[in-house]
């Protein structure tokens, strides 16, 4: 713009696609009151369109195109509903892979992991000693649950920190590997067999770039049970 002459600048201005104002301009006190009718009627009409018709149309299309996802990606095992692929579950028994710590509360406010109708995280700050103590406890429990892990094995950070939703369905590959000795022992399988199963359940990054490689705990555990049956 710096080098354009005044005349070309004026030409540029006249070619603005917006165009100039139309002849009639509303102003003054009378016009204030005239805004009331559109305020009320457009609120109602647009609520009908965007607040009712839009979600209904989306629901119709979603149920037709992607019925499984639209109803919560529910998972059945032997014909029985066992959970949602996307919603993590609480696991305690040694023969199953365990998910990440969960800081959810039940509706009465008591800490209850993986409450799927009350998602949330700990919101503990980085210098809060309550957080550091909690992590220490999780480390102690983890070590107790996994006595066969060789001493000095690094503790994967996702196994001792609470997820954001409290419903994280995934663990890292390192977190799955960490639990292999326990699972193999509890199930009488070779560590190699369990490791192969883990490797078969790794989901990579999107386009090799976005997000993190991960293992879905419910799917892995269902596959473990399958392995036992065959």
């Amino acid at each position: 713009m710096r080098h354009t002459t005044p005349s070309t600048a004026a030409t540029t201005a006249t070619t603005t696609p917006e165009g100039e104002e139309s002849a009639q301009v509303e102003s003054g006190r009378g016009a204030v009151l005239r805004q009331l009718r559109p305020a009320i009627l457009l609120t109602l009409l647009l609520t009908l369109i965007a607040g009712v018709l839009y979600p209904l149309a989306t629901t119709g299309a979603a149920q037709a195109l992607f019925p499984s996802q639209a109803n919560g990606s529910l998972v059945y095992a032997n014909g029985k509903l066992v959970g949602s692929r996307l919603i993590g579950q609480y696991w305690t028994q040694p023969q199953y892979f365990h998910g990440r710590p969960s800081a959810t509360l039940n509706l009465q406010g008591t800490p209850t992991p993986y409450e799927a109708d009350n998602s949330g995280g700990s919101n503990l700050g980085p210098t809060n000693s309550a957080l550091i103590q909690t992590v220490q406890q999780r480390i102690d429990e983890l070590k107790k649950e996994n006595p066969d892990v060789p001493a000095g094995t690094p503790i994967p950070v996702d196994l001792v920190t609470a997820s954001a939703s409290g419903l994280d369905p995934d663990i890292s590959v390192a977190a799955a590997y960490y639990q292999i000795p326990r699972i193999a022992k509890a199930r009488g399988l070779s560590q190699e067999a369990v490791r192969q199963l883990v490797d078969a359940h790794i989901t990579g990054r999107f386009l090799g770039l976005f997000g993190e490689p991960r293992v879905n705990v419910l799917e892995l555990n269902l596959a473990l049970d399958e392995l036992g049956h065959s």
């Binding site: 959970g83 996307l86 579950q89 696991w91 199953y96 993986y114 799927a116 049970d225």
Partner: peptide, 23 residues
């Protein structure tokens, strides 16, 4: 994977016997 339904919350019994109410 985002749900789009008007279902009631789903009651689930997990493999380990923990009940879950999925919103």
């Amino acid at each position: 994977g985002a749900p789009q339904n008007f279902n009631a919350y789903t009651h689930v019994m997990g493999i380990q016997g923990f009940a879950q109410t999925i919103a």
